[in-house]
Design a protein around this nucleic acid. Structure first.
Length: 1003
RNA sequence: GCCCUGGUGGUGGAAUUGGUAGACACGCAGGACUUAAAAUCCUGUAAACAUUGCGUUUGUGCGGGUUCAAGUCCCGCCCGGGGUACCA
């Protein structure tokens, strides 16, 4: 009987669905295991072969954990709010909900085709009001909380208000926008609006005037992690800085915990490192500089207070509000001009100009707090408004940026830390953190590390500032001027942002006629007519960003249909946090930070009993596409005297020609031939034209071609011509085969290099696809997609299948009543031969297994288990192949061996396993079986084949009993014939014996 | 620039704690079966030299080092991939 994967796979996918075998109950009697894939944003393109890599891995892992007796939660849902569907809506008018729904259907059918064991009864999408009700609910909790630095946790804002009423800000140590100081009386005197403004300084979800990343083309604000290289991550549109009222989440309050707790989770070093860098903790000190002849002060943040005697200027960020205040009359025009031009720069321009120094002197001076010297104050856009205090002390000798600035404007560069011998401080700053202080008064002679400590002490003693920690991490911009997101449950009453009551949630997205901003520049939600709180008050028009729902979605799977809570306490207590989380590395600083932040917040509120959402995180590598290219001449003409237009032919040339042309290596002869060919074709296309004047030098360009037209770099010219039926395409000097060039790139529709799992599955089946993706290499490694080698995996499955059949195609592995190593979960129904009828066979498949066979089996059981546990799926596929090769050699088809093997294989090739399992007479799914127990006794050997090496080079093998002592081994080895041959007359200096490993003889 | 990764046959990759480098698979070559092909099965396959056979030497990006022993550890470089970008 042939291995008919098409039939088998269809049959079992239907069976799993019909019998709801993949359903998971919250069953406290069983140990839990939570395996989660990062849920996808369902784009219109569907899944390509890169997507399933992680899904298959997590599926194998889940199925394995089930076999090991765990109650496994392995759900899937949809990150359904987002920009692409809305952009599409703007272009076509199709409601994003419809686009999203269609895309989800496609994704889901593809996932089912992959045999993924999701419990679809727990599915949801973040755009369901029943889901985003709880996203809004968490937002309200954030709104109603502040962060108490004393207790290091979020606390109710009401408690803070009580404190204000009692004692004002005194004794309060809060995470806030700016340090405020007011008394209880002051507080009581504030009107409602003022109180609201003050509280926004403390709330974890707050509204403020803030510098934001504004993307005019998308018409919205973006978070830092949504901006890459100064352009939007989605769409690649320019981003500029803009000051506007803005909802933000006070994530900076959690910076320390987000950093420290990284130590306790099993995530890859690279992700942890990326997060550490993103959070960017730096220790230093604040330091005040008094303005000369003025009561104002400038406070800077520095990590190098040891260099304070090397300060020769102060630089303020252009956005710093002190600039306007301190600039002297004569400098005003120039400074204002400078601020204006720097403000108008997009982020991209600003970044591109990093190397170019710019700035302007304000005319103001400060007094150096230790030397009393006058120090000029400058403005420069290398100083960022959003970091530290938006002001730096310029120490040109020991900071490369200050150095560039000082050099450009001719400021002093005095050395205060001893640089290594021969260092030219005028040429390059010495930024190193070792050396002794010089020219530094009380710091002289101290090492940098010690000097930093002393300097901070002095600064604090003199009341000039204090030791401080700064973070690069910014508060997360939370509002989007967009339609397709969760509405923010806030309305405006007398101009005061007021939260809705939790009982009034969800606040549903209103219907609107168009998805663009209004004519007056308001977000699309302003188009909703009669959309007012209690018919009276205007709602907030911005919506939440794409990452809002994904910051807590993993909790909803635990109790997805609960109308009363985001998830019940019982469900959360049972499932706890994610045991294994798999997804792409592109989320390392966005999603994964927000997701950790929200978890910590929910923990502070006592809503979840853990501080980290995912214990273990694995990033699957990207599967890249291989794009194909063809090459053509770029033809151009000199002006044609009679002014007629000319039709240009497309002349396709070989890769060699393309390279030669671009390198300018074409010989005169080649050039002439090519020219006359071109002229000939041009004449064909333009019969009435006199000789056109081709311009040399020749130019050539490359073009992507759909990879479905290319196989092994060979272009299918017939297909190509059929697809592009034009009479102006000519192949130059190409007779039969055209060899395309290729390049490895990201797999994407626009690059014509997409391979879908559908194609692969149609040809080889799901089980082959699953195993092949795993066989490609380590899960975390990126690799280009190639089907070279897929036949090896396919052959393996066919060979495995054939083990169960004789030459006549009859199923020959019978029911053997005496051996059932799988035991516990599924006793074999006595005599019930469900499926096909076992027949007797000359190979006696019911006979007892031999020690050799048992050894093969148990070696495999052990290896597969170990490999799955460390997510090394590629080596487990090899292990199966080795096992099969060995069984094949022994012509083994005994049930006692094959039945447990089916279980081992079932996480990888679940359909094939189910089919064989049922043919063996089982009436329940192999999903309900138990992973076979590994028995050490079958692997025990009494001899070991020692590799014997001389000076580290292996020369021969020697089989020796295991129970020999080191000395005996040495004796045996040295007296062996082979060893004597190698030793000859040279004296043996030393013999190293590592029992059961190796023998090394030094001569 | 900085941080993180990786670099092993013709190809994908294996070697888990310093202990037989190249498992497994693809590809290729040869053979069996076949009228023939496909499929299947068997054999070989790191390179160089030698070849009648035994073999010998080299070899995990490059250069050093530690060690009885290095793909694995240390130092200095080169190259690819990813992240980040004036963070004071």
């Amino acid at each position: 009987m042939e291995y008919n994967f098409r039939e088998i796979e269809k049959k079992w996918q239907k069976n799993w669905e019909d019998n709801r075998v993949l359903r998971v109950e919250n069953d406290p009697t069983k140990p839990k295991y939570y395996v989660l894939d990062m849920f996808p944003y369902p784009s219109g393109a569907g899944l390509h072969v890169g997507h399933p890599l992680g899904y298959i891995a997590s599926d194998i892992f889940s199925r394995f954990k089930r076999l090991k007796g765990f109650n496994v939660l392995h759900p899937m849902g949809w990150d359904a709010f987002g920009l692409p569907a809305e952009q599409y809506a703007i272009q076509t008018g199709q409601h994003p909900a419809i686009t999203t729904k269609n895309n989800i259907e496609r994704y889901k059918s593809q996932m089912n085709m992959l045999g993924l064991s999701y419990d679809w009864s727990r599915e949801y999408k973040t755009s369901d009001p029943s889901f985003y009700k709880w996203t809004q609910w968490i937002f309200l909790k954030l709104f109603k909380s502040w962060y108490n630095n004393k207790t290091a946790k979020a606390e109710p804002i009401d408690a803070l208000i009580l404190q204000f009423e009692k004692s004002g800000t005194s004794g309060i140590h809060a995470a806030c926008g700016e340090e405020l100081n007011f008394s209880a009386e002051d507080w009581k005197g504030f009107d409602d609006k003022k109180k609201s403004d003050v509280l926004f300084n403390y709330r974890l979800a707050y509204l403020s005037e803030a510098w934001v990343n504004w993307c005019p083309q998308l018409g919205t604000v973006l978070a830092n992690d949504e901006v890459k290289d100064g352009v939007s991550e989605r769409g690649g549109y320019p981003v500029e800085r803009k000051l506007m009222p803005q909802w933000s989440l006070r994530m900076t309050a959690y910076a320390d915990r987000l950093l420290n707790d990284l130590n306790d989770i099993d995530w890859s070093d690279s992700i942890k490192e990326a997060q550490r860098n993103w959070i960017g903790r730096s220790e230093g000190s604040s330091l005040m500089f008094k303005l000369n002849g003025n009561s104002d002060t400038i406070t800077v943040f520095t990590t190098r207070p040891d260099t304070v005697f090397g300060v020769t200027f102060i630089t303020l960020a252009p956005e710093n509000e002190l600039v306007g205040k301190i600039t002297t009359e004569d400098k005003k025009a120039a400074v204002e001009e400078y601020i204006k031009t720097s403000k108008n720069k997009t982020e991209r321009e600003r970044q591109a100009e990093v190397k170019r120094v710019s700035g302007e002197f304000t005319g103001a001076y400060v007094i150096h707090p230790f030397t009393g010297k006058e120090i000029p104050v400058w403005v420069g856009d290398y100083v960022l408004a959003g970091y530290g205090t938006g002001a730096v002390m310029g120490v040109p000798a020991h900071d490369s940026r200050d150095h560039a600035f000082a050099k450009h404007f001719g400021l002093d560069i005095p050395m205060v830390i001893e640089a290594p011998e021969g260092w030219d401080i005028l040429k390059e700053s010495y930024d190193g953190k070792t050396g002794k202080c010089i020219n530094s008064d009380f710091l002289n002679g101290l090492e940098v590390k010690e000097a930093i400590k002393i300097a901070i002490e002095q600064i604090e003693n003199r009341g000039l500032g204090k030791g401080k920690v700064n973070f690069r991490l910014r508060d997360a911009a939370f509002g989007r001027q967009r339609y397709w997101g969760e509405p923010i449950p806030i309305y405006y009453k007398d101009g005061i942002p007021t939260p809705m009551d939790e009982s009034e949630l969800p606040l549903e997205l209103p219907k609107i006629d168009k998805f663009q901003p209004t004519e007056t520049g308001d977000p699309p939600l302003a188009r909703a007519t009669d959309w007012k709180y209690k018919g009276k008050y205007q709602y907030e028009y911005t919506t939440m960003p794409g990452w809002a729902g994904s910051s807590w979605y993993y909790l909803r799977y635990m109790d997805p249909n609960n109308p009363n809570e985001f998830a019940s306490k019982e469900a959360i207590d049972y499932w706890q946090n994610i045991d294994l989380y798999i997804g792409g590395a592109e989320h390392s600083t966005g999603h994964l930070l927000y997701f950790r932040f929200w978890t910590k917040f929910l923990y502070d509120l006592g809503l979840v009993p853990f501080v980290e959402p995912a214990k273990k995180l694995v990033n699957q590598g990207m599967i890249q596409g291989v794009s194909s290219f063809f090459y053509s001449l770029t033809l151009s003409y000199s002006r044609i005297p009679d002014g007629n237009t000319v039709s240009l032919p497309t002349i396709i040339i070989s890769k060699e020609f393309y390279e030669k042309i671009n390198a300018g290596n074409l010989s005169e002869l080649e050039k002439d031939n090519l020219m006359s060919f071109c002229i000939e074709q041009i004449k064909k296309l333009n019969p009435n034209i006199n000789l056109p004047h081709l311009i040399s030098p020749l130019k050539a360009s490359s073009h992507r071609v759909d990879i479905t037209l290319v196989k092994d770099d060979k272009l299918d010219i017939t297909e190509f011509k059929r697809k592009y039926p034009r009479d102006d395409i000519f192949f130059y000097q190409i007779a039969e085969t055209y060899y395309c060039g290729h390049e490895v790139e990201k797999m994407s529709k626009s690059k014509w290099n997409v391979v879908t799992p559908d194609d692969v599955i149609a040809q080889y089946g799901t089980d082959t696809m699953r195993m092949y993706e795993m066989f490609l290499g380590p899960l975390e490694q990126s690799k280009p997609w190639s089907t070279q080698g897929i036949s090896g995996v396919h052959n393996f499955l066919r060979k495995f299948w054939k083990l169960f059949f004789n030459e006549k195609g009859e199923f020959i592995v019978g029911v053997d009543p005496c051996v059932d190593p799988t035991a516990t979960a599924t006793p074999i129904g006595a005599g019930s031969t469900h499926g096909s009828t076992p027949t007797s066979s000359p190979t006696t498949p019911t006979a007892a297994p031999t020690p050799a066979e048992l050894k093969i089996l148990h070696k495999t059981i052990k290896k597969i288990e170990e490999d799955i546990e460390r997510l090394s799926f590629n080596t487990s596929v090899s292990a199966f192949m080795i096992c099969l090769n060995e069984l094949h050699e022994l012509k083994c088809n005994k049930r006692a061996i094959l039945e447990p093997l089916i279980i081992c294989l079932s996480p990888f090739a679940p359909h094939l396993a189910e089919e064989l399992w049922s043919k063996l007479g089982h009436s329940t799914s192999v999903l309900k079986a138990s992973y076979p127990k590994f028995e050490e006794k079958y692997l025990v050997e009494n001899t070991f084949s020692y590799p014997v090496s001389f000076n580290g080079k292996t020369r021969f093998m020697l089989e020796l009993p295991l129970n020999l002592s080191k000395e005996e081994i040495e004796k045996q080895v040295l007296s062996s014939e082979d060893a004597q041959k190698w030793i000859k007359d040279t004296p043996v200096k030393k013999v190293i014996v590592v029992p059961n490993k190796i023998v090394n003889i030094v001569v």
